[in-house]
């Protein structure tokens, strides 16, 4: 009885926390993306090898980063679901999947648009590209699995197991450029050495990556609040807030 009450309370508390946090994060996101994209398009110098085409990096790398970050968030939530049957973690995982899928698609699409002028091809079965495509399929499979199970407890558990199994793909994506020396260039930021990218290009790139990450949190918080309302519409605190007109 206490357990059940405790769980309900935590979604209620999170609902309130998200309500306070979301507007501030939205403002932060707008600033980060505004400054990052401005610097990326206007301040960062032209690349001596790739000309202006390299500016795709300012949307490509952040979306690829986000595709991995969201997956790791989902995997972490899935762990909480398996170990503690935490309802809130199941909600966060559920609303994160479509966002993750959309940014995985964006990483692949912008990569394709960058690959055409630089590599001479839209697509190649290169290790990095293929493993990122598999990530997209895992996201889609995860959403399909969720949609196909009606029982909430079974749905939470089955999808959490799928998400945790899919984690093996994450290091494969990260290290694909080192393990298989195919078309995609190796890491230039996240490595043990110091980044091999000039600060005038690195700064807007990091601002954009951070901006994308904050954007995910804004959308995730918004959708989490909606899903909490959808799932707990019969609970007294939701009905109270609805009656007072402050949902």
């Amino acid at each position: 009885m206490f357990r059940w009450f405790h769980k309900l309370a935590s979604t209620r508390n999170f609902y309130r926390l998200a309500e306070i946090l979301a507007p501030w994060l939205a403002i932060l996101c707008a600033i980060l993306l505004g400054v990052g994209l401005f610097q990326g398009l206007f301040v960062a110098p032209t690349d001596y090898e790739q000309g202006e085409s390299y500016r795709i990096i300012f949307v490509h790398v952040p979306s690829a980063w986000l595709s991995l970050f969201i997956y790791m968030t989902m995997a972490f939530c899935s762990l909480l679901v398996i170990v503690w049957k935490m309802k809130l973690a199941d909600i966060v995982a559920e609303v994160s999947a479509p966002v993750g899928a959309s940014f995985t698609f964006l990483a692949l699409a912008t990569g394709s648009l960058w690959g055409k002028p630089m590599w001479g091809t839209w697509w190649e079965w290169d290790a990095r590209l293929t493993s990122e495509l598999i990530l997209l399929f895992i996201y889609i499979g995860y959403m399909a699995l969720r949609a196909s199970i009606d029982n909430p407890a079974t749905r939470a558990r089955a999808s959490a197991i799928l998400a945790l199994v899919g984690v093996v793909n994450i290091p494969i994506i990260k290290f694909s450029v080192d393990w298989w020396n195919t078309l995609h260039q190796p890491a230039s930021i996240m490595k043990f050495d110091k980044p091999s990218i000039h600060p005038t290009m690195l700064q807007p790139l990091l601002l954009c990556a951070l901006g994308f990450t904050v954007f995910y949190f804004v959308v995730m918080l918004l959708n989490t609040r909606s899903l909490i309302l959808e799932r707990e519409s019969k609970s007294s605190w939701v009905q109270e807030r609805a009656a007072e007109g402050r949902l």
Binding site: G51, E52, S53, I56, V59, F105, L106
Partner: peptide
């Protein structure tokens, strides 16, 4: 974009589309 407009701008447009859709 130094002749790369057909690749750079669709990338940014697609990003805007995905972001706004979310």
């Amino acid at each position: 974009m130094g002749g790369y407009a057909v690749y750079v701008w669709p990338s940014f447009a697609l990003t805007a589309l995905v972001t706004l859709a979310n």
